[in-house]
Design a protein around this nucleic acid. Sequence first.
DNA 1: TTGACATATGAACAATTGATCATATATTAG
DNA 2: CTAATATATGATCAATTGTTCATATGTCAA
Lengths: 114, 114
Amino acid sequence: MEQCQEKILHMSQVKRAVDNIPDANTLQSMTDTFKALSDPSRLKIVTALSTCELCVCDLAAVCGSSESAVSHQLRILRNLKIVRYRREGKIVFYRLDDDHVKSLISQSLQHVKE
Amino acid sequence: MEQCQEKILHMSQVKRAVDNIPDANTLQSMTDTFKALSDPSRLKIVTALSTCELCVCDLAAVCGSSESAVSHQLRILRNLKIVRYRREGKIVFYRLDDDHVKSLISQSLQHVKE
DNA sequence: TTGACATATGAACAATTGATCATATATTAG
DNA sequence: CTAATATATGATCAATTGTTCATATGTCAA
């Protein structure tokens, strides 16, 4: 191990690679975003919302899970600014927060379809 | 709950949303891809590899973790076709498998920078 | 062949996570 | 106000996951 640390094969590339890694906070936010999309229930919610806004009740029907479970997942997505919501009376409508999320979905779709 | 299932607020949207959700296998592959990027160690590896190819030894140095740990993570990334490798004597060089991964990284970076 | 080095893998353990159930909050109707 | 409905949240528990350590494999040099 020691030896290996000392004779890194491509020092300049390693340096460049290290410089290219985002700072710890940014990296953490990025992994949080990916983690949010790494659960089938949440990905279902997000892909569903990529067509139009939906309320919690509808999302539960779409995902085939309980409203409580959906609500828990929505909180995670909300905290990560992946979804926004607006209240209309008793109903809360959710939609995607920005277009980057749509991009993430479509890129991953293309990736797995190869 | 029963009641809610029966009076879905926007039936046509729900139908459209359901139709837009990829089939189970595709969805699983997508979540696997996101999961792969949802770990700080693996995201470090991937962002490092987005600059140039690197060997396991270098990646360990870049990530500040053991070569064993890196190797374990690389296997996961390999299985998901996120990275490729080529062997040159004793050294194994890793690089990103395709450009979709780069896109995923840059999109998530833009997302968190807002 | 043997020894050294780079990488890979298996097992085990600690930490994280998603679902469930019960309960709480928010809004409207009456 | 109270009742009903839609959503949110807290606690618990089972399942999953990343790291570590030990060991195995693969490659080259002598």
